[in-house]
Design a protein around this nucleic acid. Structure first.
Lengths: 138, 138
DNA sequence: ATAATGTTTCCAGTTACTGGAAGGTCAAGG
DNA sequence: CCTTGACCTTCCAGTAACTGGAAACATTAT
């Protein structure tokens, strides 16, 4: 099948498939007489694997390693697990950071009139001024 | 003062200050005879505002708008609040997405032996196979 | 034959900067 | 006066992971 069909079946755009080939994430596809890339079911399976891994937020570098393990019949599941655990740790750091920001902003928003008047604790905080009667939020 | 001192006082790198000038986030600084950018306390205050806004995850585009409101004595606090609320909404979407991924991965990790054996529910899931005795996790 | 669709490669743009190169400026020391 | 070193200047590249678009070729349908 051509790249368009492989794209539709795998859920990865044709552009992205070419990109993955260009960076070496997938093998260069064999070409037809006219120069079109040609894919089989196995290729679609790999592409689907990639889509799902990317959908879980794994970096392309992680996916490279996961694909390597997927192909390796002698892999140790410990190696897969380690990649996933490191990824989860990164996600947890990110969530903690976002939650901290969310709490700060939510607090500032609650104290902002949100009307036509100009005074605003959000701007006060950004400007570095202490919100009156309130500990500095950072 | 020169850019280095403004950078140290504001907590923004000299590189970033030049970048902010290049994209129009801040006004071009006046130059000394030798061509050095020259900053005053007001400039440092603006830079500090930018650093704090960026630290709360506001995009540079948001910061442009926040700075505009900060400068505008006739602003409506409602406009500031709206920007902050939209940002919080985006953060909440992101957190929800990350939490969903975290739950999926944590579940898969718990069911992975993590030893020298090759079978691994994480790879099974990525490959699209149902984890034995377990509903498909996505 | 021609039109429509699919595919090819290549370049640019996205976000928000950072790193580095090549070269000018400035203050202090010899 | 000259040099050294710290600081500054501009400009180009690179980052992550693609997407959009242009120009041209291939294939299929009418």
């Amino acid at each position: 099948m051509n790249i368009g069909e492989a794209a539709a079946l795998s859920g990865i755009s044709a552009k992205a498939i070419r990109y993955y080939e260009s960076i070496g994430l997938i093998e260069p596809a064999p070409r037809s007489d006219g120069g079109y890339r040609s894919y089989g079911d196995t290729d679609v399976a790999f592409l689907t694997f990639i889509r799902r891994a990317r959908g879980l937020g794994f970096s392309v570098e992680d996916v490279t390693n996961l694909l390597g393990l997927y192909r390796d019949r002698n892999r140790a599941s410990a190696d897969v697990k380690a990649i996933a655990q490191a990824h989860v740790a990164g996600i947890e750091r990110k969530v903690a950071e976002l939650e901290s920001i969310r709490r700060t902003l939510t607090h500032l928003i609650e104290n902002c009139h949100g009307d036509e008047r100009p005074d605003c604790p959000i701007l006060d905080d950004l400007a570095g001024a202490a919100t009156p009667g309130d500990a500095r939020l950072v």
